[in-house]
Design a protein around this nucleic acid. Structure first.
Length: 473
RNA sequence: GCCCCCAUCGUCUAGCCUGGUCCAGGACGCCAGGUUCUCAACCUGGAAACCCGGGUUCAAAUCCCGGUGGGGGCGCCA
């Protein structure tokens, strides 16, 4: 049975890059009918923060990435790490490096600084550890230090990457790997291997920045006698400047996208498309279908630039597909709670669902659906209410509107156009002022549709109100 | 310096494994037109790419080699 994991370190918020990695693991697990596990790599006490753990869990949950089994915290496994490292030492597969971290640093600077040849450097390191130079001879007395695993000198360390095919490293270029520091803490590569083995992980799917770690980890798996999992390395996600994505590229955290009014399934869809294409000619593919079609072997090998315009477009597609009722619920967090009402939200949805890009836009462009207290844009008002004749025309139109019995788009349009003709002005002369009266904005949905949706009472009330401005002036 | 990975429109990609149907398909964005009461949306059309050089072959985006460019690594960081 397939078992995969997502293993973030809680030193920052859940990032779109991490989310994409989680997503691919999740899609793979679900597609294969396996398990998707979560492990928090919190060994870095200095930088790990509880609030980041919460952010990561919340982000995953929001995206609809549900993990199986209990969350594993790497710090829980410290004892196992130490135990296994000592076992390797006893078995002679690893050896003691008696330098302290500081001393080793000095040794490196003094004896290894100019060495460019990796194989040569590896041999010299070994030499320096087993047979220290005079000034460090005394360390041989110690029975403490770091533990290093012996890496073979001959042959290649190879693995079959599910995405890239065969990858091969010359063993002679890989230095003996520190698995336990002199302070007794496990190193990253060692902890990852032990934890993955303990969790029975069958497939390691992660960013391609981990490719160089893989041969080292394979050495560790072998020394430990654990089965080596399959590996798949995903390409990175880059910012618009083609640099590795970071905070500098605006919103990089998953929850920030939620707060911008992005739908989780839209982000899911978009992220899945970064490096993989389920169809040659379809982009909007909901999560369920993505999972059904997912094929790790078809994942692209080159890095992808994060294009927020496309995210916005996909989001707008998902918004269009929602019902007014669903949208009314979804937009709730983006509308001030004093004015939110389900009725108003439904009106906003009906009015704007085909034109907005985010959930935030419903309030941004549709405040008038919720309340009479919307802002009337000054420049719009000035432009279309320039003289007294505007108010005269509106008064006449208002009379006609009052007479309408069937308040329907077509009827309203006919009445307005007839009135315009009677007054000898273009319909636009009435349309624009009315739009501003009822919405406060010079842009928006088709006016007649808007009037119908808003309802006769509101429309009449709002036209009356704006006319009061005219008498004041 | 050495090791490893990558390379199709501005961007995401299909095609590459199993050469010909590709003077390279789709999508976002962009431009133009249509619709129209505005702005979007929508519809139609358009500009836009196989990194370079060799080789293999009747034929290469597709296979091979080299170069160039980008990325990762060479840590008692993760």
């Amino acid at each position: 049975m397939v078992r995969v994991r997502f293993a973030p370190s809680p030193t920052g918020k859940l990032h779109v890059g991490g989310a994409r990695t989680a997503l691919y693991n999740y899609m793979f697990a679900r597609h294969e009918g396996g398990k998707f596990l979560l492990r928090i790599e919190d060994t870095d006490r200095e930088r790990s923060r509880e609030e980041f753990v919460r952010d990561i869990l919340e982000g995953l949950r929001w995206l609809g990435i549900q993990w199986d089994e209990d969350v594993v915290y790497q710090s829980q496994n410290q004892e196992r790490h130490r135990h296994l490292a000592r076992k390797l030492l006893e078995e002679g597969k690893a050896y003691l490096d008696r330098y302290t971290a500081d001393e080793w640093q000095q040794v490196r600077e003094k004896y290894l600084a100019g060495i460019r040849d990796q194989a040569q450097k590896k041999q010299m390191e070994r030499q320096l550890i087993l047979d220290p130079p005079r000034e460090f001879r005394h360390i041989l007395e110690r029975d403490t230090g770091a533990i290093r695993i012996k890496v073979p000198d001959e042959g290649n360390i190879e693995f079959e990457d599910l995405i890239r095919g065969k990858i091969s490293y010359p063993a002679s270029h890989i230095s003996d790997i520190v698995i336990l520091r002199s302070d007794g803490s496990p190193t990253y590569n060692f902890a990852v291997v032990v934890d993955d083995a303990l969790m029975n992980i069958t497939h390691v799917i992660r960013g391609d920045d981990h490719i160089p770690n893989t041969p080292k980890q394979i050495v560790i798996y072998r020394a430990l006698g654990f089965p080596v999992p399959e590996f798949a390395h995903l390409p990175m996600i880059l910012g618009p400047d083609k640099k590795k994505l970071s905070k500098r590229h605006g919103a990089a955290s998953v929850l920030e996208y939620r707060d911008m009014g992005i739908l989780p399934e839209a982000l899911f869809n978009f992220l899945a498309l970064l490096g993989w294409a389920p169809y040659p000619d379809r982009e909007v593919v909901p999560p369920d279908e993505m999972i059904r079609l997912f094929d790790i072997r078809k994942v692209n090998r080159n890095p992808a630039v994060f294009d927020s315009d496309k995210l916005l477009w996909i989001n707008s597609q998902y918004i269009k597909a929602k019902s007014e009722e669903e949208l009314a619920e979804l937009m709730k967090p983006f509308v001030p709670q004093e004015v939110y009402s389900r009725e108003g939200a439904i009106l906003a949805a009906r009015l704007l669902k085909d034109r907005v890009k985010t959930l935030k836009d419903f309030w941004e462009y549709g405040d008038y659906a919720f309340t009479d207290e919307f802002v009337i844009e000054e420049n719009a008002y000035r432009k279309h209410f320039s003289g007294p004749e505007v108010f005269q025309r509106l008064r006449i139109l208002l009379e006609e509107f009052r007479k309408i019995e069937e308040w329907k788009e077509e009827t309203i349009e006919k009445v307005l156009r007839d009135t315009a003709e009677r007054l000898g002005v273009k319909a636009a002369r009435l349309i624009h002022p009315v739009r501003i009266a009822v919405s406060g904005k010079k842009v928006g949905p088709s006016l007649f549709f808007m009037l119908e949706v808003l309802g006769k009472d509101r429309v009449i009330r709002r036209i009356e109100r704006i006319m009061e401005r005219g008498t004041d002036d």
